[in-house]
Amino acid sequence: MRSAPADRVRELAGPGVPLGVPPDAGVPVLQVDDLSVAYQTRRGDVTAVDGVSFDLARGEFLGIVGESGCGKSTLLFAIAQLLAPPAQVTGGCVSFKGTDLTELTERQLAAIRWKELSVVMQSAMNALNPVKSVGSQFADAMRAHGVSSKREIAQRSAEVLAMVGIDGAHLKSYPHQLSGGMRQRSMIAMALLFTPDLVIMDEPTSALDVVAQRSLMVQIKELQAELGFAIIFVTHDMSLVSHFSDRLMVMYAGQVAEFGPTRRVFDAPLHPYSVGLLDAFPSIRGPQVPLTGIPGSPPDLAKLPGGCRFAPRCQKVMPACETTAPPLYQVDDIQVRCLLQAGRGPAGD
């Protein structure tokens, strides 16, 4: 059940096509700068991602949480260059190991997918080809990147499948023959076929029981420590990010609401939305308490209000919040978009 040794993964991946500068040169694996994405709709532009910036270092684990519909998947799609119309990048750029991804052709992108940058999408059912067995999809990905030996393909496929806790017999299974959690795990296995520099995962464990989840996360962390890839991990599971991510980004209505070291955000959340998120989950221990969540609903992304986007639901709302859109403030090592911090300097990078 242990992960395959790093050397073996490298050997299989073969000599990589160098893209830009090697990751060790001190350049972040990923730089996202003021990225905005809008969906063009009948009702006008839906701004699903609005001015998001962050850098990701080699070996870093970034967790992203936020309300359903706040733009997390859209952000990931934009980073991985997987957006399709009516979605459009309306501003900013994404650079991967020093290369601006938006300038690459489809062919150049295909050369790095799976091998250097892999994506586990929110819907494994959508991402997997329904008419191909899991094993043949693994084989396709490996062949596309020059692994041609049948024996190697079979061996590596079995290794990654065992790593995610699925019976090897299922290499012959089609996606519809797997359970929800098994499909998710096959996608994770596929993302780890090579030695990517960046693995993007959109709620990859939402269909897994906690035992399988913990085992999988521990293995991913071990593999990450060994191979040094960076991870962006979107989840609704606060305990997952609390235990595994180095930094945590809380998104609200397309924007970064709060961003900083995970422990700091958990121990002393600054944004009223983060506070609400951290108060809203039930426990299996202790007395039962009725929970209410955060009353109200998020703004319509096609008709954004003038002031703070969280103002209509905020417990701490002040008159200024209704009219002034808060910028990101820097509070020690945390960035937070809330007028309660108006005395602080702007977040700079």
Partner: peptide, 17 residues
Amino acid sequence: DEPVSMLDVSIRIGLLN
């Protein structure tokens, strides 16, 4: 079948309630 697995904690509580 897993009706709240993709919901954030706040909306999740709403649906559970």
